[in-house]
Each structure stands twice: as structure tokens, then as C-alpha cells.
Design a protein around this nucleic acid. Structure first.
Length: 597
RNA sequence: CGGGGUGUGGCGCAGUAGGGAGCGCGCUGCGUUUGGGACGCAGAGGUCCGGGGUUCAAGUCCCCGCACCCCGACCA
């Protein structure tokens, strides 16, 4: 490709709205352009990289038996109603009506379509197992798109779906993906770890996320350096230090002016935060058949702990959970800032109340809690005696320094970007959509499903995030839009010899099947070199009068400082050898990763 | 959805006290230059986010919207 014809330009300065290095560089280098919040165009060079990433995905998924297809982006609402996700998912789902006023959905993912196909196509155990996949656009109207391509609303994802006759089959396909996903990320040049995750809106039995670790990541992970336990903060389990059980003391109401927060309260009473009970108020939607009921949730954790909302959602089997407003707190008869389940009216006109208590509370007695009276708290509150819980379960979020449940080591907290995930769906979709087959024994059984996704744009951004320096991007050979950046330095002195030589070399490289970006623009050397560094192709060749005097061409790897002068008639071979070497370097990173439950 | 911020040529920004729409880069033409974002000369390019209002006069003051960014919530 001649840069003089390339449909994209580099920018000297990044737009003010970019913060992450990958975002700034992808924009500056001319790879991406924004159309609206979370909606981007992939410019020609980004498109080439994405195609390479997707070809790696194809290669790996084909290798474990995948069959590529294409499923629609627009779905009739009916299939989403059948699985009830039409009702469970809120504003994140793109909905519109077609010209006949039929409800339609923009695909967020494709379980419904797969299930719809499965029930039509799969009738016998003889047709199983199956692995199908496609690479397709998704729309998720995220409340807060951010960080360039990392978190967007419209994106392309490779999603595969496994169909099996039994659970052992699912395990096999799940574990095959487990390794093949590592291969995909390693071939793209990024290190990842797998962590246990919440199943979220997908439903199902087991899930892993693949995390690319970076301080700019949006997910918080807890990692035990001792035993290797790694989990998303949403689900991380940890060993709670139980307090020594004390004798129950008498309930006592005390004045605690201006002590609305736990910190203020502990300070005022001069007690540790662990001796207080923190109440968090939420309103939950809990599905019941095709509709759902709202409940007011009173969540209680010890004052020194944080509520983990994912754990709360799972405990309630809620479809939505949001903080309660002050008005709502008042409406159930509690006093904001001084609320607790003690002395709440039995009934209220607003919503039914559910009290959910962390499993540390039954062992922690004589805690200070709100008195439901402005400026007052209760001393020595005890679960069971002073108030009752509807649910007692693990509700708290693990933090750095917490104790690993497996080995007693302590957790580190790190940030990561989720670049892929795998789910054991089980029969969640088969049951609701009636995907059954006749087994060997003649009985009708539900198809066992799994689903596995990787976003290609997010992966591209992660590669850019991993591979850059102060001057620009540094693409791994497997993902680079072009393998070689050919620069010609123009000079009138040489009578156009450099230009002529560069043209010849360009044609020769192309004839050898090498992908070349040729900077044939009438620009000064500084501009060309800076652009070459910014765009970041793995190999740079420079044709100039200076080198040609000795019959040589300059050769430089983007990820290395040294430059080499190579004889003109050896340059093509040298480039081919270096490309092979770069591939070999990537190849070394592709390793087997033992599957961990 | 809460909190914070920003909207002025393509990009980055300035715009004092309410009165002239500017600067740097980029872009066009001509010339000189050519190994790390060159130089000279001449140019083009603006609904100052939108809508109301105040005023003789609004980029600037007031009201109402919208968009985008950041933190949180949520989410793959």
C-alpha cells in the first residue's frame, strides 16, 4: 500500500477525549475514528489487523472442530421472550419496531438464535456433539462506554456455541476452548490469565474470564500468589476472620449526633469499625414467571467490610438491583443515615422488605446499628434476638490482603481487561426453548450448551495497550497491518535514484508475498520516521541516497534500537528471514495451560 | 442513574471588562529544502454545541436542552 493513497492520516496530537495509551495511539496513528460514544469506525489499517486477529480465531476454533456460519444481527423479540431475557435485560438491549410494529431486538449475543436453530436441526444424539461459531456484530447499549475500543456499544465478537448430548461432552468442549483461547491470545502477542467469574446475564453453571492485566483495566481481580487462585472481585471467595463470640449485652439506645457514616460513628463512639453493622439499601427486581416483583432490600455487612453486589444479586436471584433513594428509605419507615432492621414497621405501604445478612454477622455480636431515629444508634444489637434475617449468606467483597480460602495466603488486587469468556450454559436455553434430542436409550433429553466469546476490537486495543512505547505502536508480526514499512528519503541530488530504487524494492517485496506499507509521500525524513514509529510496523526499511552510494538499504526492527545496513540484493531474503524469526518468537509463547476448575 | 468536567476552523487550544473571532499544528498554491515532525511568501477554512432570554450590542451574562470525556453504579 502506498501511503500517498492511504485513506487515513496520522495526527500530531491525540484528541483531548482519549486517555488510555492504546486509545490515543490508535487514533493518532489513524487506525480508528469515533462516530458516537462507544461507536467506532475501523480504518483500513485497523481492518487489516482485525482480519488477522479473526483469522487466528478461525484457525484455532476450526482446529477444535468449529464450523463457521453467520447468524443475523436483527432478531424478532419472540425468541428473547421465550428465554425471558426480553424481560430480564433492561436498557442495555436495543429494541425497535419494524414497519409492521413487530418488536425487534439488536443482537447482544446469539444464544437465542442458536437455540432456535438447535431445536429445528438437532433431533438425534447422532448429530451431536457440534461446535458452531460466527464472527458478528453485537449491540449492547452500555451505560458507560469508555477507553476507546476497550468498552464500546457496537462491537464485533467471535462467539462459538457447543451442543452436546451429555455433560461430559460439554466438559470436553469447554476444556478445548479453555486451551484454544490461550492460544488465540498468545498468538496475538498478549499475556492473559484465566479467572473464575460470575455467570451474569448468560446464566449457566461455570464461567471463566480471560484477563489481560493492565492498570487501565476495568475489572478488579484478586490473585493469590501462593496457590494461584484468581477470581474476579465479583465472585472472589475468601476466608473471613470470625470474631470471638461475646456474651450478649443489653440493647441500649445512645445519641450519636452527626454520625451518618460508619467512619464517623466509629470515631464518635471510639470503637473499631468491625464492631458496627453497615446497612445498605437496595431495590431489587425479582423475576416471577413473565413478570417480576420489586422488593426493598436491607443488606447488612459488618462495618469494616464492603458489600459485593454480585453476591447479593445471586442471593436474591434478582434481575436488577439498584441503590434505594432517600425517599424510598423513608417510605419503608427507616431513617436514612440511622437505619437498621431494628424497630422497622412490620408493614409499609411501599414495598415488601427482605433482610439479607452477611454470614459473618451471626458470629459478630453486640454490634452498633442504627436506631431508626435521627441522631441515634443502638448498642449491642444481635441477630436473632433483636432482628431476624430472611437470608444469611456470604455478601462481602474480597479485598487486597484478605485470606485465600484455598491455602491461607493473602490476596493481591490487580486490574484487568476481560478479553474473552467461556460459559457452561448447561440447559438454561435448551429448557426454555425446547431444544431436545432423542438419545440412544430412546428418551428425549435437553441439548447441553456452552458459549464462548472474544471481542475482536477489544483484543486489538489490548494488543496496542501491551505493545507500545513513547514513539508509538509496536505491532506483533501476527497482528500488524503490514509486515514491512518501506520509507524512501527523497533527494534531488541523487536524480531520483532513491525513488526509483524504492519502487523496485516495493514491487519485489510484493512479488514475494510480503505485506508492505510504502511511504512514497513527498515528506521530510523526520515526518516519515516519526510516522513509521507511530504506526508501528514490525520491520522498517529505509532507501536513501546515503545508503545507495554503498549499494545498501537500512533495516530496523521497530522493537529494537539497532539499525543494520544490508546489501540491496540481499534485502528481500533478510526481510523474509526476519519475518520468520518474528513468527518464531510468537510461537514460543504458545504454551499449554493446565485446566483449572 | 449519581458526582465531576469539556463543547470556539480538521486536531490542540487562547479569547481579558459584554463591542475586532484569534494562535499553533494541519490543509491549498509557488519556491527553497531532504537521515528524526524543515523554511519563506501567498491563501482557503467558523451556525463560537442547540434553543430561548437579558442588552443598543452576547463566544462572553441568565434559563432550558444536547453531545462528548472522567470517577462511581452497572456490564462482556
Amino acid at each position: 500500500m502506498r501511503m500517498s493513497k492511504l485513506f487515513s492520516q496520522t495526527l500530531r496530537e491525540a484528541p483531548a477525549d482519549a486517555e488510555m495509551p492504546s486509545h490515543k495511539l490508535l487514533v493518532r496513528a489513524g487506525f480508528i475514528r469515533q462516530l458516537a460514544a462507544g461507536i467506532y469506525t475501523a480504518m483500513p489499517m485497523a481492518k487489516r489487523s482485525i482480519t488477522k486477529i479473526e483469522d487466528i480465531m478461525r484457525d484455532e476454533i476450526n482446529a477444535i472442530g468449529g464450523q463457521e456460519m453467520t447468524m443475523p444481527v436483527v432478531h424478532p423479540a419472540e425468541v428473547w421472550q421465550e428465554t425471558e431475557r426480553w424481560y430480564q435485560i433492561g436498557s442495555e438491549m436495543g429494541r425497535f419496531k419494524d414497519k409492521n410494529q413487530r418488536d425487534m431486538v439488536l443482537a447482544m449475543t446469539h444464544e437465542e438464535v442458536v437455540a432456535n436453530l438447535t431445536r429445528k436441526e438437532i433431533h438425534s444424539y447422532r448429530q451431536l456433539p457440534v461446535l458452531i461459531y460466527h464472527i458478528q456484530t453485537k449491540w449492547r447499549d452500555d451505560p458507560r462506554p469508555r477507553a476507546g475500543l476497550i468498552r464500546v456499544r457496537e462491537f464485533t465478537m467471535k462467539d462459538s456455541y457447543s451442543l452436546d448430548a451429555d455433560w461430559e461432552g460439554l466438559d470436553k468442549q469447554y476444556e478445548a476452548h479453555y486451551q484454544s483461547y490461550f492460544n488465540i491470545f498468545h498468538r496475538c502477542g498478549i499475556p492473559v490469565i484465566s479467572v473464575k467469574s460470575d455467570v451474569g446475564m448468560m446464566g449457566g453453571k461455570m464461567a471463566h474470564e480471560y484477563m489481560y492485566l493492565t492498570s487501565f483495566g476495568e475489572d478488579t481481580l484478586l490473585i493469590c500468589d501462593d496457590c494461584g487462585y484468581a477470581a474476579n472481585r465479583h465472585v472472589a471467595l475468601f476466608k473471613k476472620e470470625t470474631s470471638v463470640k461475646e456474651d450478649e449485652l443489653a440493647l441500649e439506645k445512645v445519641a450519636t449526633p452527626d454520625s451518618k457514616t460508619i467512619a464517623e460513628l466509629a470515631e464518635f463512639l471510639d470503637i473499631p469499625e468491625a464492631k458496627t453493622a453497615k446497612a445498605i439499601f437496595m431495590v431489587a427486581d425479582i423475576p416471577e414467571g413473565e413478570s417480576s416483583i420489586q422488593k426493598f432490600v436491607f443488606a447488612i455487612v459488618r462495618g469494616d467490610m464492603d458489600l459485593n453486589e454480585t453476591k447479593l444479586v445471586n442471593a436474591l436471584a434478582a434481575s436488577e438491583l439498584r441503590p434505594a433513594t432517600e425517599e424510598e428509605i423513608v417510605a419503608i419507615g427507616a431513617v436514612p443515615g440511622y437505619a437498621s432492621p431494628i424497630g422497622l414497621p412490620e408493614t409499609n405501604d411501599y414495598l415488601p422488605v427482605v433482610v439479607v445478612v452477611d454470614d459473618l454477622i451471626p458470629d459478630s455480636n453486640n454490634l452498633v446499628a442504627g436506631a431508626n431515629d435521627a441522631g441515634h444508634h443502638m448498642l449491642n444489637t444481635n441477630l436473632g434476638r433483636d432482628y431476624q434475617a430472611d437470608i444469611v449468606t456470604d455478601l462481602t467483597a474480597a479485598r487486597a490482603g484478605d485470606i485465600c480460602l484455598n491455602c491461607g495466603g493473602s490476596f493481591n488486587e490487580i486490574r484487568g481487561v476481560e478479553v474473552g469468556n467461556i460459559f457452561k450454559l448447561g440447559t438454561r436455553y435448551s429448557d426454555s426453548m425446547g431444544c431436545t434430542f432423542q438419545d440412544k436409550d430412546g428418551k428425549e433429553k435437553p441439548v447441553i450448551m456452552g458459549s464462548y466469546g472474544i471481542g475482536s476490537g477489544r483484543l486489538l486495543a489490548s494488543v496496542a495497550e501491551e505493545h507500545n512505547d513513547d514513539y508509538g505502536l509496536i505491532w506483533p508480526i501476527t497482528v500488524a497491518p503490514y509486515q514491512v514499512h518501506l520509507v524512501v528519503l527523497l533527494s534531488k541530488k541523487d536524480g531520483g535514484a532513491s525513488q526509483e530504487e524504492a519502487n523496485l524494492l516495493y514491487d519485489e517485496l510484493l512479488a514475494e508475498g510480503i505485506e508492505v506499507l510504502f511511504d512514497d509521500r513527498d515528506e521530510s525524513p523526520g515526518v516519515k520516521f516519526n510516522d513509521a514509529d507511530l504506526i508501528g510496523m514490525p520491520i522498517r526499511l529505509t532507501v536513501s541516497g546515503r545508503g545507495l552510494e554503498k549499494g545498501q538499504i537500512e533495516f530496523k526492527r521497530r522493537d529494537q534500537k539497532e539499525k543494520r545496513m544490508i546489501a540491496k540484493d540481499e534485502i528481500v531474503e533478510a526481510v523474509k528471514a526476519e519475518i520468520a524469526a518474528l513468527h518464531a518468537e510468537i510461537q514460543e509463547k504458545i504454551v499449554e495451560v493446565p485446566f483449572e476448575e
